[in-house]
Design a binder for these strands. Structure first.
Lengths: 149, 149
DNA sequence: CTATATCCGACTAATCTAATCGGAGATGAT
DNA sequence: ATCATCTCCGATTAGATTAGTCGGATATAG
């Protein structure tokens, strides 16, 4: 219910990891171990991101993935889109299934589409940079506490 | 993935039906037939809404449900909350499960909580009245097309 | 040529959601 | 008073979605 899939979680974690290491390629195993994620699953996620040209991949030893765009240029909406397809509040708003089961008397479709649009807008407005930056913010919370005494 | 459950759909349909008939009680069967919904499932949904004092119920023949509040006073967020519990973008933000599986190195928790809060705010801002009103609005779209020739 | 990568489809397992079933407790109408 | 028609509630089954696994192909640095 209104939750992100684990795939999206994993994608965000991996992307934030890569955003912090822009100078070199990181491979699937390395990232999976960092966050204790299932390697094969993460692999497929990274493959999709590479195919969508969010990441570049290089094969062979010393290979791995690297961010292709600046974190500011990547939106959470785009990531969701790539990995799970465009989300929809209700099934009848998905690109595949056009018909509301048998509900032809549905009176709430139009307003719900507006809500749906608001949700998509929200996701598009959030950049990967925003998802990454808060390491520094939580440091700003921690350090004063250490300094206090 | 970021979708409402059918229970929520059914709840919104039922509530919009009741909003259009404020003068009398409607029973489960009547509403279920109107939208071709499974009766027993709808029954449980209405029961929850009644328990949460969104609806009042009266038993026996001629009984049924009636809206207790004006549609403007009921938010979609509240309905979601009653039927499925407070939604959360990721599991670790739910009131029950406090711990991120094994991911202690999670770097994205704080920013995601902010996104989560934005989503909840959005749901709280949308009233049942908004979900109901668009019958008239979609008429405003249709009529000019008919008038055109 | 070999070890280490990405890549990709098909499959199984686990979880979550939808729907059904059985039966108890009100209450208005006859 | 009893009967038909409701609400009410827990337990269970069925179905759909998501998570995770497996086997094998292709690329490449050393």
């Amino acid at each position: 219910m209104l939750s992100l899939s684990k795939k999206i979680d994993y994608a965000l974690l991996a992307l934030s990891y890569l955003a912090h290491k822009p100078y070199r390629a990181a491979n699937t195993k390395e990232i999976a171990e960092e966050y204790a994620l299932p390697v094969e699953l993460l692999a497929k996620i990274l493959q999709k991101l590479a195919k969508a040209e969010i990441l570049v991949s290089t094969s062979g030893p010393t290979g791995g993935y690297r961010l292709l765009l600046a974190p500011e240029k990547i939106s959470v909406g785009a990531i969701v889109d790539i990995i799970e397809g465009r989300p929809a509040l209700v099934q009848c708003m998905r690109s595949d299934s056009h018909s509301c089961d048998q509900i032809q008397k549905c009176t709430i479709r139009t307003p719900l589409m507006r809500v749906n649009a608001r949700m998509l807008d929200m996701l598009d407005e959030i950049s990967l940079a925003e998802i990454c930056k808060d390491e520094t913010e939580s440091h700003l919370v921690t350090i004063p506490l250490l300094v206090r005494s």
